[in-house]
Every structure is written in structure tokens, then in C-alpha cells.
């Protein structure tokens, strides 16, 4: 479903992502963790087609992002960490804008938008301007928008930031439900507990290089620490 082949990104002289090779299968939830500035957001932006890689390829459902960006993006629900929202649009107008870009027809939009607004507890505020929303509400609206077109792949950067405990639980449950239905989820997070709870596989990126990948058990074995939690594994792998 998702394949990163020798993916690299250079910013001037800084190598932000170095020859990343990764494969995430259908219905899998992949947690992407790493210290600040490790290259997580850069990788996610390249996967979302927002940033062109310096070299290498991003394949989404077998489609090369560089060759057929529109086809590839149609398969993705992209949720950035600090999404820009049009403050002068209402929540509903924003959803309609996104739906139009994904060619969601009117009937499906009406059904889906109401379903997502209910799911993310936004129904009663959907006709208010986004500028009046709290940070958490904006985050929930972005998620609702990303799920409108029933994506086969979800690429999400720090999904839980700004959400209240109820919303976090709802998002976790929903991601698990989507994965059960065959949706592939690639998410970066600093909340190791979330990664531990819902991810089937975890990748740890450090200074642009993928230093470890596998299931929770694989990682434990990797650092020879039976019984260690993800935080201990993470610290052991990334501390200077």
C-alpha cells in the first residue's frame, strides 16, 4: 500500500531524510517516531505530495507520487500537524471545498459530511466561521475533511495534538476500525503510548535515517531489552 524507495531529501547541505526504504501493508497502522528534527514531517510531506523528494520514490497503492501525483493523492487522506484552515469559511464550507477537490458527489457529500461532523462532535458548530473554533476543533475538522472521500491510505502527522481525552479515544478507536476495514495508516507521533496502543509496526527515525523498524516485539529484541516499554526502547536507540 505504501512503499518508500530510497527516499531522500536535502535542504541545502542538510540531509533531512537519508535513503529511506519502507513498506507498509494494507490494513496496517504504522507508527513513525523519532526525536525533534529527525525528519518525520519531511517524510510525511513527501508522502502527501506536498514536498518533492531530492531522490527516491513514494509509491501509494502502487502509484508513483512523482509520476501521477493526482492519482496518488486521491488515495490519501492527508492530515498535517499544523493544518492551515481558511478562517473566514464555515466548517461546512471547508468540508465542501475539500469534497469538491476530491470529486465527492453532492449526495455522498451530504451523507458523509454529516456522518463525520457527528463523529468529531462538530455538528452544532458546522455553520460557524472556523476562526471561532478552538485548536482542538480545528484539528477535528481537518480529520473529518481528510476522511470525507474514504481514503485507502491515511497519512497523519501528530494526530493527537490539541485533542481532549475523549477525542483521542475516539480517534484511536476509529483508526483501528479503519485498519480493520483495510485502510493503511501511516502516522507520526511523539505520544509513545498512542503508538504502543494502536500501531502494528513502528519505525524509529533518527537524524534522517530509519534506525529500527518492526513490531513492538521486534524492537524489544533489537535493543535486547525484554519487558522494556516503547519509551525505554526509544531512549536507548536515540540517546546521544
Amino acid at each position: 500500500m505504501i512503499e518508500l524507495k530510497n527516499l531522500s531529501k536535502k535542504y541545502g547541505n542538510l540531509l533531512a531524510v537519508d535513503t529511506l526504504n519502507l513498506r507498509v501493508s494494507k490494513g496496517e497502522i504504522f507508527g513513525f517516531i523519532g526525536p525533534n528534527g529527525a525528519g518525520k514531517t519531511t517524510t510525511i510531506n513527501m508522502m502527501g505530495g506536498v514536498l518533492a523528494p531530492t531522490s527516491g520514490a513514494v509509491m501509494i497503492c502502487g502509484i508513483n507520487m512523482a509520476d501521477q501525483p493526482e492519482h496518488a493523492k486521491r488515495k490519501i487522506g492527508f492530515i498535517p500537524d499544523r493544518a492551515y484552515l481558511y478562517e473566514k469559511l464555515t466548517g461546512m464550507e471547508f468540508l465542501k471545498f475539500i469534497a469538491d477537490l476530491y470529486d465527492v458527489d453532492e449526495d455522498r457529500f451530504l451523507k458523509k459530511s454529516q456522518e463525520k461532523l457527528d463523529m468529531f462532535f462538530l455538528s452544532d458548530r458546522s455553520n460557524e466561521l472556523i476562526e471561532s473554533y478552538s485548536h482542538g476543533m480545528k484539528q477535528r475538522l481537518v480529520m473529518a475533511a481528510a476522511l470525507l472521500h474514504d481514503p485507502q491510505v491515511i497519512v497523519v502527522d501528530e494526530p493527537m495534538v490539541g485533542l481532549d481525552p475523549l477525542a483521542i479515544k475516539m480517534v484511536k478507536d476509529h483508526f483501528k476500525h479503519l485498519a480493520d476495514e483495510g485502510v493503511t495508516i501511516f502516522m507520526s507521533t511523539h505520544t509513545l503510548k498512542v503508538a504502543e496502543d494502536i500501531c502494528d509496526k513502528i519505525g524509529i527515525i533518527h537524524k534522517g535515517t530509519l534506525i529500527a523498524t518492526g513490531t513492538y516485539e521486534d524492537l524489544r529484541r533489537n535493543v535486547h531489552a525484554e519487558g522494556a516499554d516503547l519509551e525505554q526502547i526509544f531512549i536507548r536507540l536515540t540517546e546521544p
Partner: peptide, 14 residues
């Protein structure tokens, strides 16, 4: 523009 990341993540050609 701050919304460029949003619109470029959509399935619309650049």
C-alpha cells in the same frame, strides 16, 4: 501562502 500545503496535498495538478 499558508494554505499551500493544504491545496498541494489535494488531488489537483500543480
Amino acid at each position: 501562502s499558508r494554505d499551500l500545503s493544504l491545496v498541494h496535498s489535494m488531488p489537483v495538478s500543480s
